[in-house]
């Protein structure tokens, strides 16, 4: 199976290990991810706050580029996923917006007909490939590993239709397919606050503290994420958050593709397992 791949800015540098592991895992699962030629930033929440029309147009450019190929667009970053998907939906629903975006695209010699199917990488794995296939490829069952499957917000909201916006299960089921144990985790779709880290650290940290408390209170040994921003918030800031609130959090955070990679016995170097700031714990070292 072949997909057009839109990594997004975060996966280029700060979350390169997400991209590396995604590519490695996909290859093993028989998926070819072809990077979208000359893609641009999706605008994220930040550009959208500044000027909606331009922000939608930025996404539309990516969609127009992707439309040249007869393939679905696979997106690993939840934020990019929501931006692109929202743009595609609004272009369909809102005639005025469609018209303006088309004018902007046209000026740049582009056109978008509305045909690109956008999927989050998790959706590709769970729905297109299927858990049975993944299970059959698992070489090393992650028996007994207690995993907190953290969805965050933008992968299931607003209503993308691939999983329930309140209590999604796809990542839990994927975790089970790898032989690991997904823990009970009432906050699994709470916001990680990453968009506020720069501008309102205190509030962002408070959100992260709640998440980490909930995870550690339920004995998780590792958190897996489906979004580079969630990963950054929970991994890079974990120590600071702990310090601020007087907790000694030490829960490694992995991109979900890294965990898959471990079960598929992909060399941990290739997965970039050790690029996280929170050191790996014993439970994880067992698989490395």
């Amino acid at each position: 199976m072949k997909y057009t791949y839109y990594p997004g800015c975060s996966l280029e540098v700060s979350s390169k290990s997400y991209s590396d592991s995604a590519l490695a895992v996909s290859e093993l699962l028989g998926i070819e991810l072809v990077e979208l030629e000359d893609w641009n930033c999706c605008g994220a929440t930040v550009y959208l706050s500044y000027e909606e029309l331009i922000s939608f147009s930025l996404c539309a450019r990516n969609l127009a580029l992707a439309e040249k190929y007869d393939r679905d667009l696979a997106v690993p970053c939840s934020s990019c996923y929501t931006s692109l998907k929202k743009t595609a939906t609004y272009i369909q629903e809102n005639a005025e917006l469609r018209d303006k975006i088309n004018q902007a695209l046209q000026a740049a010699g582009l056109e978008y007909k509305g045909k690109v199917n956008i999927k989050h990488l998790l959706e590709v794995y769970v729905n297109d490939i299927g858990l049975d296939v993944i299970k059959s490829k698992v070489k090393r069952e992650l028996k007994g590993l207690k995993v907190a499957p953290y969805y965050g917000c933008q992968i299931v909201r607003p209503l993308h239709g691939f999983d329930d916006p309140e209590s999604p299960t796809s990542l839990d089921r994927l975790t089970e397919a790898l032989g690991a144990t997904p823990i009970y985790f009432p906050n699994k779709t709470s916001c990680c606050g990453s968009s506020l880290i720069a501008t309102n650290e205190e509030l962002a940290f408070r959100m992260q503290k709640d998440l980490l408390l909930c995870v550690s209170g339920n004995d998780a040994e590792v958190i897996i994420t489906v979004c580079p921003l969630c990963h950054m918030a929970l991994d890079a800031y974990q120590k600071k958050v702990g310090k601020m609130y007087g907790f000694n959090f030490k829960i490694p955070v992995l991109h979900f593709t890294q965990l898959m990679g471990l079960a598929l016995e992909i060399p941990s170097k290739k997965l970039g397992i050790k690029t996280g700031l929170v050191p790996l714990n014993k439970a994880l070292m067992a698989y490395i």
């Binding site: 540098v13 000359d38 930025l58 450019r61 740049a108 582009l110």
Partner: peptide, 26 residues
């Protein structure tokens, strides 16, 4: 140290196309 920060920006090839589009949208 973990190669998660790059000193240099990456510019897309067809930046002019993007700018034309942004200008038009503006």
């Amino acid at each position: 140290l973990r190669k998660r920060f790059s000193l240099f920006p990456k510019r897309i090839k067809n930046i002019n196309q993007l700018r034309t589009m942004v200008r038009k949208a503006e």
